Amino acid sequence: MKIIIVAGGPEEKHPDFSCFPVKDSIWVGVDRGVYHLLKKGIKPHYAFGDFDSLNSSEKEWMSSYELPLFEYDSEKDKTDLELALEWAVAEQPERILLVGATGGRLDHELANIQLLLMGLEHRVPIEILDCQNSISLRAPGTYEAVNEREYPYLSFLPFNGPVAGFSLYGFKYPLKNQHLAMGSTLCISNELVNKSGTYSFSDGILMFIKSHD
């Protein structure tokens, strides 16, 4: 089972929805993300939010679909997306795909990226997707990177502290046992030289970003 969460970020930043897995997927709308989904002809299985980003006519149109709602007050200690993610990780899905989390207000975007930590804590992979990027976090270990035409550029950033013992094999710019400090741009915009490569590290949390121009 996969859970696809669509938050309220700008619709023009959405990836192509046709690439999403349909079978065994649960669609979740968060705040204005519910409206975005319905406009695309997708009725979410669940809707989360205070819906303060919708005007009265949009709310009335949305309510005609009689969606299962998790509705909250606008004044609260967690964002609508955090509440939706807490529900999603508790379901223990195979994977969570998060759309509409980037491209809007910077404070929301940065907070949403930090919410990826929830996936590591609950051992549920969470991936943020937009029209240009894929963002995810990694715990120490060894991973395979596959050459994908839609994502030619691969970047690695320390997330909440330094990353130790970082190595890259099969990349245009290989590394061995490198220390990655916060604020370093050493591992921005690398590329695979073959169909696949590997990256590994021994300590820290790594942010893995796949991008295209």
Score class of each variant (00 low, 15 high):
residue 1 M to K: 14
residue 5 I to L: 12
residue 8 G to M: 13
residue 12 E to L: 14
residue 14 H to D: 06
residue 15 P to W: 06
residue 17 F to S: 00
residue 25 S to E: 11
residue 28 V to H: 07
residue 32 R to N: 10
residue 34 V to G: 09
residue 36 H to C: 00
residue 40 K to C: 08
residue 40 K to S: 05
residue 42 I to S: 12
residue 47 A to R: 08
residue 54 L to K: 08
residue 58 E to L: 03
residue 60 E to F: 01
residue 61 W to I: 07
residue 65 Y to F: 13
residue 65 Y to S: 02
residue 67 L to P: 14
residue 67 L to S: 09
residue 67 L to Y: 11
residue 69 L to Y: 14
residue 72 Y to M: 05
residue 74 S to M: 04
residue 76 K to I: 07
residue 80 D to A: 14
residue 81 L to D: 15
residue 82 E to W: 04
residue 83 L to I: 15
residue 84 A to Y: 03
residue 85 L to T: 04
residue 91 E to L: 15
residue 92 Q to G: 03
residue 93 P to T: 06
residue 99 V to D: 04
residue 100 G to N: 14
residue 101 A to R: 01
residue 103 G to W: 10
residue 111 A to P: 06
residue 114 Q to M: 05
residue 120 L to W: 10
residue 128 I to F: 04
residue 136 S to M: 07
residue 136 S to T: 07
residue 139 A to H: 07
residue 146 V to L: 15
residue 148 E to M: 15
residue 148 E to G: 09
residue 149 R to F: 05
residue 150 E to L: 13
residue 156 F to Q: 01
residue 159 F to W: 04
residue 160 N to Q: 12
residue 164 A to I: 03
residue 168 L to W: 12
residue 171 F to V: 13
residue 173 Y to I: 09
residue 174 P to N: 02
residue 185 T to C: 01
residue 188 I to C: 02
residue 189 S to V: 08
residue 191 E to Q: 10
residue 198 T to P: 00
residue 201 F to W: 01
residue 204 G to E: 01
residue 205 I to M: 03
residue 206 L to H: 02
residue 206 L to K: 10
residue 208 F to H: 14
residue 209 I to V: 05
residue 212 H to L: 03
